[in-house]
Simulated scan of single mutants.
Amino acid sequence: MITYPFLDKGATIGVTAPSSGVGVEYQELLKLSTGRLKKEGFQFSIGETASTQAKAKSAPAKIRAEEFNAMMSDEHIDIIIPPWGGELLIEILEYIDFDLITNKWILGYSDISLLLMAITLRTGIATAHGTNLLDLRGKYFDETTAQWQAVLSTRSGDSILQHSSQKYQREWQDAKPSPYVFHLTESTVWRTVSTDTVHLQGRLLGGCIDVIRHLIGTPFGNLQYFQQQIIHNEPIVWYLENCELNTTDLRRSLVQMKLAGWFEHCSGVMFGRSAANKPVEGYTAEDIYQELSEELQLPIIYDIDCGHVPPQITFINGAYAEIVVEAGKGTVKQYFRP
């Protein structure tokens, strides 16, 4: 069964960096983010790794893991939100004490999705794929990003509905700070392969494919155990997003998932918008989605609000979801079913 944490008002947020910390040049962004959330009543416990960064990581693997383990077992910390993603979270997995994992939310994306996936697969505790801490520094939240609090404050047994965004950000404009953080200029369209209308149902799992693919074949990626012992062979709806892979690398990753059995008992696959997906000899992401749909005989949805092209919906690993896409618009209703 799936266990769902609950975010209460006035919660204490633990800020640790299991991947990358915040270097000196970005310290002001961390202060803005914590200050913004303090105005909403949140308290903070900030770890040492949050403010250090060298050689593509916040600290050596054991130090990062020790700080995460300490925050996870600290009864005064209610939720853990890393500052952002990074590159080398995979180094800490062997040092995480999964027996210490308690029923508290972890929220993030990018490299953090590797940790989220490992925890949900191993423990059955739901984890939250969504905004990172530094993207919560704006004076205002756009409607899609703002839903993170409502989603994480949904009680076990209840449900919550989210809608596709109206607009998305094509590119970062750091020289022109926005009170919403993101510069939402492009019209959002959720697209589908083969049919104009798609209706999916199943347990959500996913994250950044660049990193979660590396769980395959490890003790932290035992999907068969999760399917059989935790969700009792209910279908899975995968949501995936691509940070840096060109199309042939994305294709290799999806074939690896298929050969490893990760698409068995699957009812559909969703892909986030991506600024990567660089075609190779005319081989495009759309070609990949078409091929995957034909091979798996499953519906494919793409350009959804997920990942490195914001804003993004808050997806809960382990939640039962109903996803409907029609005329370019999408809804995601998540049921916090055990």
Rank of each mutant, 00 (worst) to 15 (best):
R170F: 12
E234N: 08
K278A: 14
V237R: 00
E294P: 04
T331F: 14
G282M: 06
Q149K: 15
L114P: 05
K31F: 06
T247L: 00
R170Q: 15
F220T: 01
Y95E: 06
S113D: 13
G217E: 04
G124Q: 06
Y4W: 07
E48W: 01
T154S: 07
G157N: 04
I300E: 14
I63W: 01
I323P: 09
I63N: 10
T127S: 04
F271W: 06
K38T: 07
V151M: 05
E244T: 11
H214G: 00
L88I: 13
K39C: 03
D174H: 10
V280T: 12
Y140Q: 01
T49H: 09
N317F: 04
K333W: 05
L215P: 02
E234Q: 13
V309W: 10
P235H: 06
T248P: 00
Q53G: 07
H163T: 15
N103F: 08
E186V: 13
I125T: 07
L107R: 05
F42D: 00
C208W: 03
Y320T: 12
K38C: 14
Y320S: 09
S33K: 04
W172E: 11
S73Y: 09
L30Y: 03
G261T: 00
K167N: 10
L93D: 07
Y109P: 07
T16L: 06
K278E: 14
D174A: 10
A65R: 06
C266I: 06
F98T: 05
E91A: 00
T145Y: 03
F182H: 13
H183M: 10
A285G: 13
W172T: 13
V189Q: 14
G282I: 05
E186T: 11
P18N: 03
Q147T: 11
E48Y: 06
E28V: 07
I96P: 01
W172N: 14
L254C: 10
T284E: 10
Y239Q: 02
E294D: 15
D74L: 00
V280E: 11
E186Q: 14
T188L: 09
E66A: 15
V325N: 05
Q149S: 15
E94S: 09
L89M: 10
S159G: 05
F68S: 04
W105S: 05
Q169S: 11
R251L: 09
M117L: 14
A59G: 09
Q169K: 10
L100D: 08
A54V: 15
I316Q: 12
S73H: 03
L37E: 08
T120A: 13
E326M: 12
G10L: 10
